[in-house]
Every structure is written in C-alpha cells, then in structure tokens.
Simulated assay, not measured.
Amino acid sequence: MNLDLSWADLVVPSDKRSGRPGSADTWAMLLEADAADFVNAVTKLEREPVEGGAHVATVDGARCETKQNLFAEFADKLNFPGYFGGNWDAFEECISDLVVIDGIGGHGIGSEFGLGNGISASLLMLAISRAELLLLGGSHEDRQILVSILRRAASGGNLTEITGPRRLADLRVIFQSDSTGFPSLDRRLADAGLRGSLRRTE
C-alpha cells in the first residue's frame, strides 16, 4: 500500500491547536500503517516544501524500549549536544531548547544549544515508527513523563527559564504502528495522558 502524507494533514491552524493540559493534543497524530510505508512516506514528505521550512527527524520506537535507550535514540536523531545528561530533566531541557528558533548561538531550530547556527526551519516533526514499542520496558510513569514533555514543548510551556522574546518552532509528532500494534499504542498513550490527538488509519 502507498501511504501519502502531506503537510496539510499535519499543520493545524494556530487558533485550533494547543499543547496545554486538559486540552486536545492536536500536536500529535496516531497513525496506523505499515512501518516501511511510513518511513518511505516521511522521506517523501521531507522533500515537499512547507511555508517557513521544516525539519523532520525519524525515531525508531524499537530502539526506545527502555528509558536509557530512548534517551540515546532521541539524542542521536535530534542531535542533542554532548552535555546531554541522559535523564528526564536533561531530556526536557534539550527538547525545549530545540524548538527555540531565536537562540544565543544564532537562528533556527536548535540554536539555543549555543553550538552555532541552528536548522533553518519553523516546523519540527518527529516521526516515530513502531511507536507501540516506545518505553515498552519502561514504567507507566516514564510514558506519562514523555507525553508531558512533548506536550509542554508543543505549547512552549516548558520555556519559563528562557528570558526575553523567543520565536518557537511548531512541534508535531506522529506515532506510527501497524494494525497489530496499534491497539496497544492507542491504549498506552491514552493511559499516559494523551487526549484528542489526530488519528489516521490506512
């Protein structure tokens, strides 16, 4: 099956999106599709133009079954700086800094890391394949923390320590699973607090 993804499916108008607790998590999409088709569709999507530019990072949920493995996979695919500490506080700090477009080191996604100019884009998309395996060997609390961190990054709510005006990239996350794993993914993310996300089945 050919899976087509478009930016129009993923970019929610600013007046209809939110990452605040208790509101719909329209920054997230749950996608039921074959993993290989998903990766191919994401690769094709990267080549399509979108206003303001986009940076796409593909994360493999099969490499994120434990908390430490998740930290390593995200650090690799999102180019976390070398000082990343491998814990939830450091993970949140890096995700928060990643979505800052105007930072101390220059401009673009990740410029707040202070390692030079960032990526010229105003949209950051995390494409998580085989997402039913995310933190499968972790705790319920770990899954709650992950959802909360991504939610706060999507809303800019975890940037209280950054002073002065900042432009933030829009964060979108696609959680992909095939038909076998999708019910488990749906249940685990709901139990972790994800509510009102976009949904698509193939």
Rank of each mutant, 00 (worst) to 15 (best):
Gly164Asp: 09
Thr180Phe: 14
Val59Met: 11
Gly196Cys: 06
Asp9Leu: 14
Val42Gly: 02
Leu3Ile: 12
Asp76Ala: 14
Glu112Met: 15
Val42Cys: 00
Tyr83Cys: 04
Thr43Gln: 09
Arg143Gly: 00
Asn87Ile: 07
Glu112Arg: 15
Gly193Phe: 13
Gly19Cys: 02
Cys94His: 12
Gly86Pro: 07
Glu65Leu: 08
Glu161Tyr: 13
Val59Thr: 08
Glu202Leu: 14
Trp88Leu: 02
Leu98Ala: 05
Val56Met: 11
Lys67Met: 14
Arg143Lys: 12
Val50Cys: 04
Leu146Ser: 01
Tyr83Trp: 15
Ile149Phe: 05
Gly82Met: 11
Gly52Lys: 03
Gly116Met: 11
Tyr83Thr: 09
Arg166Phe: 05
Gly108Asp: 09
Ala8Leu: 11
Leu98Gly: 00
Val42Asn: 03
Gly82Pro: 10
Thr58Tyr: 10
Lys16Asn: 03
His140Glu: 14
Arg130Met: 03
Gly138Pro: 01
Thr43His: 07
Gly181Lys: 11
Asp34Gly: 13
Ser96Asp: 15
Glu202Lys: 06
Arg195Phe: 13
Ala190Cys: 09
Val56Asn: 08
Ala190Phe: 12
Ser122Gly: 14
Asp25Tyr: 11
Ser184Ile: 13
Asn69Met: 14
Ala127Ile: 04
Leu168Thr: 00
Thr163His: 13
Ile95Tyr: 10
Leu159Ala: 03
Arg187Ala: 15
Glu202Pro: 00
Tyr83Lys: 06
Gly53Glu: 07
Gly196Thr: 06
Met1Asp: 11
Leu78Gly: 01
Ile145Glu: 11
Asp15Asn: 06
Cys64Glu: 10
Val39His: 08
Pro165Ala: 00
Asp178Ser: 06
Phe91Met: 05
Arg63Ile: 04
Arg47Tyr: 10
Trp88Glu: 04
Thr43Ser: 12
Ala75Ile: 09
Asp191Gly: 00
Arg188Ser: 12
Phe71Asp: 04
Asp15Pro: 04
Arg20Gln: 09
Ala28His: 08
Tyr83Asn: 15
Trp7His: 05
Thr160Cys: 01
Asp76Val: 05
Ala41Ile: 04
Val12Gln: 05
Gln68Asn: 14
Glu132Cys: 01
Arg166Leu: 13
Ile95Leu: 15
Ala131Met: 03
Ser122Pro: 03
Lys77Ile: 06
Ala62Asp: 15
Ala192Gly: 09
Val50Gln: 07
Gln176Phe: 08
Pro13Asp: 05
Arg172Thr: 05
Ser111Asp: 07
Leu31Asp: 01
Thr66Pro: 08
Leu115Ile: 09
Leu10Glu: 01
Gly86Asp: 06
Asp15Met: 02
His140Ser: 08
Leu10Met: 06
Leu45Ser: 04
Ser148Arg: 14
